[in-house]
C-alpha cells in the first residue's frame, strides 16, 4: 500500500472510531493489563517502531490506538473463540458489548470506577471541578476558566493534575510491574 493511502486509512479509522477505540481500550486494557501488561505493551511498542517515522508523524496517536487495538484483539482471541473478522466496527461492537454480558468484567469495572471516585475525592475541590466540568459536563476549558475565575492555562493544569492524581492512586494490580 502507498504511504499516502496508509496514512489516509489510519486517519479515517481514527476519525470514525477514534473515541470508541479509546473507550474500548480503556475498558479492556485494564483487565488484560492486570496479568499480561509487559508483553502487550512491548508488542505495541515494537510494532510502532516497525512503522516508519514519516508515516506515523501525521497521526501517531491514531497509529498507537490502532496497533493497541489489534494487539489486544489478538490477545483476547487466543483466550476465546471469537471468530477473526476484518471489519473493525463489527469487532468494536462485539467487544464493546461483552463487558455487560460478563459479570466478572462488570464487577471489575465497577470496582475500578469506585477506586477512581475515591482518588477524585482526594483532590482539591477546584481540581475536581475542572475534571468533572470538562469530562462529565462537556464544558470547555475557556468556559471553566471563566466560571472559576482562573485562566484557561490554569484550568488545563488543574485538568492534568487531576488526571495524573487519579492514575497515581489506582492500585497497580499486576505483580512485578513497573516501579
Amino acid at each position: 500500500m502507498e504511504l499516502r493511502d496508509k496514512q489516509a486509512l489510519v486517519a479515517d479509522l481514527e476519525k470514525q472510531h477514534g473515541e470508541r477505540l479509546r473507550r474500548f481500550l480503556a475498558y479492556r486494557l485494564r483487565a488484560s493489563l492486570a496479568t499480561d501488561v509487559p508483553d502487550l505493551v512491548q508488542e505495541v511498542f515494537l510494532r510502532l517502531l516497525r512503522i516508519d517515522h514519516l508515516e506515523t508523524i501525521r497521526s501517531t496517536e491514531a497509529y498507537l490506538f490502532t496497533i493497541a487495538f489489534h494487539v489486544l484483539h489478538q490477545h483476547l482471541l487466543r483466550r476465546s473463540a471469537v471468530p477473526e473478522t476484518v471489519d473493525i466496527s463489527t469487532l468494536l461492537n462485539s467487544m464493546e458489548a461483552s463487558p455487560e454480558s460478563d459479570p466478572v468484567l462488570q464487577a471489575e469495572r465497577l470496582q475500578h470506577l469506585e477506586e477512581l471516585q475515591r482518588a477524585l475525592q482526594e483532590l482539591s475541590i477546584k481540581a475536581q471541578a475542572v475534571l468533572l466540568l470538562h469530562r462529565r459536563d462537556g464544558a470547555s476549558l475557556e468556559e471553566i476558566g471563566k466560571q472559576l475565575g482562573i485562566s484557561r492555562a490554569m484550568a488545563a493544569k488543574y485538568l492534568s493534575k487531576a488526571l495524573l492524581h487519579c492514575r497515581q492512586r489506582m492500585p497497580d494490580k499486576e505483580r512485578g510491574g513497573m516501579t
Binding site: 479509546r22 473507550r23 481500550l25 480503556a26 486494557l29 485494564r30 493489563l33 501488561v37 509487559p38 505493551v41 512491548q42 505495541v44 511498542f45 510502532l48 517502531l49 517515522h53 506515523t56 508523524i57 501517531t60 498507537l64 490506538f65 493497541a68 475500578h112 470506577l113 477512581l116 471516585q117 477524585l120 475534571l131 468533572l132 469530562r135 462529565r136 488526571l163 495524573l164 487519579c166 492514575r167 489506582m170 513497573m178
Partner: peptide
C-alpha cells in the same frame, strides 16, 4: 512521535492515561 517511540513505558503511560480520560464520564 519522538516521545512515544522513546520506550514501552511511554506507550504504556499514554494508553493508561487515555483510559483514565475515558473513564471519568462513566462515574
Amino acid at each position: 512521535d519522538a516521545w512515544v517511540r522513546e520506550s514501552p513505558q511511554h506507550v504504556r503511560a499514554y494508553l493508561e492515561m487515555s483510559a483514565v480520560w475515558e473513564d471519568v464520564p462513566s462515574l
